[in-house]
């Protein structure tokens, strides 16, 4: 009985993964557009770093490599966060767009299984996107990665994914409750994370009232940790990395169950008010 239930969960999780992969294949033109958009965006930002000496008119030798690395890490993490976050909020957005929300929500699976399948694909999709983007950027700029600790970088990115998933599930409540404008509302969550997380600048430059927001954003810790790992080669057990690891564990432990619970309340509310309908 227990084994059968596990098999069913595994099958259903794979169903979401496979479905999303099939959709990616069928919407291949959109994928290429988004990939190009992300790459062009990342290149534009990184060129600002390359031109820093000319822009500022600095008379002393500028550490361009460090600035480039700060920006490359920022654009890459932001790209990963965006693709993963969009993939998670698509739990609702895509179903509404395609008109399948009622069918999926009456399927004999738990919402948790539904989310696990969708989130696993979102993480895989995000990693692939970011890897391609990094390869292109590496072809444009000569960046010194001799100090990089890749193991720490990968660990922090995957650990941060758990919190991104938590925030994404939380944001998916918006399109569930607001059938017409919910998707656009979920973009706001992403935009605020971009603003406060120190993607392109240290959070110390933010006004004082904004800095506490940076401290609850998982992206802040992923970025700080990745910069320490890639620019200074810090290992997993170093104090710098641990100072980023424990907040990520904490935000993951809080954000995922809280978001799943809030989502279940929102689903219940949607079923009471008739918002769980096909189209907005």
């Amino acid at each position: 009985m227990m084994f059968n239930a596990l098999v069913h969960r595994g099958r259903a999780t794979y169903a979401f993964f496979e479905r999303n992969w099939n959709l990616t294949r069928r919407y291949w033109a959109w994928e290429i557009v988004w990939l190009l958009y992300n790459i062009v965006n990342a290149l534009s930002v990184t060129f600002i770093g390359a031109a820093a000496e000319q822009i500022t008119g600095a008379k002393v030798k500028f550490d361009t490599n460090s600035l480039l690395l700060v920006l490359v890490i920022g654009t890459s993490v932001w790209s990963y966060l965006s693709v993963t976050f969009d993939g998670v909020t698509d739990i609702i957005n895509m179903e509404r767009w395609e008109g399948t929300i009622e069918y999926t929500f009456m399927a004999p699976i738990s919402r948790f299984t539904h989310m696990v399948g969708s989130c696993l694909y979102a993480v895989a999709h995000g990693l692939l996107f970011t890897l391609i983007q990094l390869l292109v950027i590496a072809a444009f700029f000569h960046i010194d990665l001799s100090h990089a600790n890749y193991l720490t970088a990968l660990f922090l990115l995957l650990l941060g994914s758990i919190s991104f998933i938590g925030f994404g599930i939380g944001a998916a409540i918006l399109p569930l409750l607001y059938t017409e404008k919910g998707m656009q509302m979920s973009f706001i969550v992403k935009a605020v994370l971009l603003l406060v997380s120190g993607v392109y600048y240290p959070i110390s430059v933010l006004p004082g009232w904004m800095q506490p927001l940076a401290r609850i954003s998982p992206a802040t810790y992923v970025l700080e940790g990745l910069r320490a790992a890639i620019m200074q080669g810090r290992p997993l057990w170093s104090p710098e990395i641990w100072s980023c690891t424990w907040p990520l564990i904490l935000t993951g432990l809080i954000s995922v169950p809280a978001s799943v619970y809030a989502f279940s309340l929102a689903e219940r509310y949607a079923k009471r008010t008739g918002k769980l309908k096909r189209n907005g």
Partner: peptide, 13 residues
């Protein structure tokens, strides 16, 4: 593709 997706949700190999 649509029906395979549905089948897996309903625990069909």
């Amino acid at each position: 593709e649509n029906l395979i997706y549905a089948a897996r949700l309903y625990n069909l190999p």
